[in-house]
Design a protein around this nucleic acid. Structure first.
Length: 550
RNA sequence: GGCCCCGUGGUCAAGCGGUUAAGACAUCGCCCUUUCACGGCGGAGACAUGGGUUCGAUUCCCGUCGGGGUCACCA
């Protein structure tokens, strides 16, 4: 018996690989077009690092007129959850990212290079595994998990490299006839790759991000087809990325140590190797140490977190883009109004060391993004968020016309307000504008310098009687505040007061603070004139009288 | 432990043999015809460490230390 016959015995009914090579031809794309993929397990969970990869891949494929594929890596059934694929697609769509090819839900896909779910590609992997066996570059291995475990213990005890390689690869040189006999006898086996590499030989690999890296050659006879008949990651990676004609493998750098293996696999299979781009994962600091941001420990690891917090998707994408290419930030400053898609992303400018995730910085990006929204956009976005996460806020927003006025305060001008960095800030920022909610707060406010009750009443009633006119323009209103201050014995100018603070009990700023707190219940608010214009005459009178009459 | 990667202010980072070592976020102070925010100005704050190479090292080489990754029939 020869290799060919052994291959036929193991994989009797599979197509010749030439069938697949023809079925999935080279893509006809423009020079420089990047074909890449996002390849998650169908766990339904999308990690920020995964999102970052998508943001970058989408940018790269858009700017080179390439192809962005969603491939589902479900060769480990343990990881699978119901609707996992749809959840992933939706989670990523929430951030404005669509795939050109690949799965669109559990069962459907688009594109000519499918199937895009590894569990549907079994016959393809078998064809290539068979090819390797025919070439004498793969073989059945009958070692049991127990035998493997024992071997590893011996290796550890002897302080030598662990693994299935060289003399430890017991079944590597098992005569074909013996192998066939075992198979016929029903002895369980898996299929291993037969490595021709040597530990003492060095190879140099050029990674697009990390530059040149030297490794010893791979000499491990890794398994390519598991007992369940499915391929291992390494084998599937080689077959899929070749057949899908992927040009750039962009993945987290936990894979760098597999490069020698992947290189040997591609070479042995006769595939052209893609460009490898290994980026550093997003980190988290804990007890002064860095670690990968974790699904279990860190809520911000899940992209759903940003949705729940109400951080707008474009803000998250911009922040992630900035982690990818830190010159994005200066581009953004130079082009404050351009869409992010105009930024030219450069893979080789990605950082080789991991960045610690900085929520504060994200929030800064976010508040700038939000500050550019129109009041209509604000309203729509906030309402959509509130419908999902805050029914009380949703309720406030029912009066659209009035809500729009509130969102219009200090918005749309050259220096828009920047006190909101996420939708979950909104309720607190606007709630006092609604009479009913405001009344619920009572009137035990924290006033500023002037906090004598009678004095406050005197200020408010004088204001209402002599100076309040809702039709005043801003300058007139402003001047009247000064007049009010002066008439009550306070300094009309802050500067004058500061020069001779003993001359007055306070200044116009203190007076307006009284008015501000009385009207809003807080010392810090956006422009008081605008607030009063939105509140309107009746609401103002009602709010002030409540205090005067108390 | 073997192999591999990384190490500039609190964080993200420019820098590629000669710089007063950028910038952003955070922080502090001042200013911005009344708060807050915005904006403006300014302050504090860094090349892990020891050896080389060089006229000169943050930059090149080696060691040390520190951090990370990986060594599965998981991806």
């Amino acid at each position: 018996m020869n290799y060919k016959e052994l291959a036929d015995l193991i994989f009797p009914n599979v197509k010749n690989i030439s069938y697949y090579e023809e079925k999935y031809p080279e893509r006809n794309l423009e020079e420089g077009a990047i074909v890449t993929r996002f390849a998650p397990s169908p766990t339904g969970f999308v990690h920020v690092g995964g999102l970052m990869q998508c943001v970058i891949n989408r940018q790269l494929t858009n700017q080179t007129k390439g192809v962005f594929i969603l491939r589902i890596e479900d060769t480990d059934q343990k990881r699978e959850i119901e609707n996992g694929v749809a959840q992933i697609v939706n989670a990523i769509r929430d951030f404005g990212i669509e795939f050109d090819e690949g799965m669109i839900n559990e069962t459907e896909s688009k594109g000519d290079y499918g199937p895009y779910k590894q569990s549907d590609r079994g016959e393809i992997y078998r064809a290539y595994a068979k090819y390797l066996i025919e070439q004498g570059r793969a073989y059945p291995c009958f070692a049991t998990p127990e035998e493997l475990e024992e071997m590893r213990k011996k290796q550890e005890a002897a302080k030598i490299r662990t693994g299935y390689y060289g003399v430890w690869a017991t079944y590597r040189n098992l005569p074909v006839d013996e192998a066939a006999e075992k198979i016929k006898a029903g002895v369980p086996y898996i299929v291993r790759f037969k490595s021709m590499g040597s530990e003492d030989k060095k190879i140099r690999h050029h990674d697009v991000i990390k530059g040149n890296i030297d490794f010893p050659e791979n000499d491990q006879d890794i398994v390519i087809i598991k007992a369940d008949g499915l391929p291992t990651y390494h084998f599937a990676h080689a077959v899929d990325d070749h057949l899908m004609r992927v040009t750039h493998v962009i993945r987290s750098d936990e894979w760098v140590s597999s490069i020698p293996l992947h290189l040997e696999l591609f070479k042995t299979l006769g595939f052209k190797t893609p460009k490898y781009c290994h980026y550093a994962p997003i980190l988290k600091e804990e007890d002064g140490k860095k670690r990968k941001i974790s699904k279990r420990k860190d809520p911000e690891a899940a992209v759903s977190f940003y949705h729940e917090e109400g951080i707008p998707a474009p803000a998250v994408c911009e922040y992630l883009m900035n982690i990818g290419n830190s010159n994005f930030e200066s581009w953004r400053r130079a082009n404050p109004n351009l869409d992010m898609s105009n930024f030219k992303f450069e893979i080789n400018k990605m950082s080789v060391s991991g960045a610690i995730f900085d929520l504060v910085k994200l929030l800064d990006v976010s508040k700038n993004v939000i500050s550019k929204y129109t009041k209509e956009k604000m309203y729509d976005e906030v309402l959509e968020w509130a419908k999902r996460y805050d029914s009380e806020l949703e309720n406030l927003l029912k009066n659209k016309e009035y809500s729009l006025k509130i969102f219009g305060i200090e918005r749309g001008n050259a220096k828009p307000r920047k006190d909101i960095s996420k939708w979950s800030d909104v309720k607190d920022a606007i709630i006092y504008m609604y009479d009913e909610e405001f009344e619920k707060q009572g009137i035990n406010f924290e006033y500023g310098k002037i906090n004598n009750k009678e004095e406050i009443k005197r200020i408010l009633s004088t204001y209402l009687e002599k100076y309040f006119d809702i039709n005043d323009d801003k300058q007139t209103w402003f001047d009247k505040m000064k007049d009010l201050s002066e008439s009550l014995g306070y300094a009309r100018e802050v500067k004058e007061y500061k020069q001779n603070p003993e001359k007055w009990p306070g200044h116009v700023g203190d007076i307006s603070t009284v008015l501000r707190v009385s009207l809003t219940g807080r010392q810090n608010t956006p422009d008081l004139y605008e607030i009063m214009q939105v509140l309107g005459k009746e609401s103002i009178q009602k709010r002030l009288n409540r205090i005067i009459e108390s």
